[in-house]
Amino acid sequence: MQLDTFLTKQMLITLLRVGVLLGIGLPLLYIGSRAVGRYLKKRTNEHLGLMVQKFMFLLGLLILTVTVLYEFGFKLTALLGAAGIASVAIGFASQTSLSNIISGLFLYWENPFKVGDLIRVGDTTGIVLSIDLMSVKLRQLDNLYVRIPNETMVKAQVTNITRFPIRRMDINVGVAYKENVEAVIEILKDVADKNPYSLDEPEPIVVFKDYGESSLNFMLGIWFEKTQFLLLKNSIMTDIKKRFDAEGIEIPFPHRTLYTGEVSKPFPVQMVPPQAQTTGAHAAPTAKDH
């Protein structure tokens, strides 16, 4: 086709109209969707803002594309017919994607977490970076990037660690059987009371849990403001050890007691003098013996 044949006056006008459409439409679409997204982020939450922003942009892009095609004279009815057939095929192929999108909507309505929360999904713990149409992105505490499909988020048990402003840290402590239980409880309460990161209210609790195999087991529960986890964890563990050492309280290793068969009698131990080890009855047989 000759260029001058293609570029008729009508075609030039069409190209100009398409150019104006795209030149004004695309920036307006971009700015408009971002503005709506920002407004919704401030008014509601970041999740909804992001979703609406992307949805608006994609919808606007689709409308622009159809309009441009219409300007060029493509028959939209044929296009719609093809789209109808294609949608069936696409539907079968994109079941998982659609499930993720719908799960994303459920996540929005339920709002179990928001951007910035620390959550645990199965074995994965991380800070929520974004909640998108298809997936949730996390940054793990060791700076790994994790993408979890929304369908998985809806099906799995999700623990929002930072949902509430305060949390309780439960520390299991074992002491030797010989220790005084009331004294240990008082000491643990005092250690918690003296730690500046431990909240006075709600009060720390000490629970005498059980009689363990090798130790008396206690649980010290300390409430703290959620951002002070590491500060409390390091300081309280050190404080407990130091205080136990100062008070002479033993943190035992696992013990095993051997009995010969009678509980009351001591375990028999025979001391063998050094000479007897080489020449006596317990000496290894020599060639002469044979």
Binding site: N195, Y197, L199, E225
Partner: peptide
Amino acid sequence: TLSNTWFGDNFGGELCYA
């Protein structure tokens, strides 16, 4: 050095000094 305390309940409140 004052210790922290919480004025409120487990769902909301304010970090205070005791």
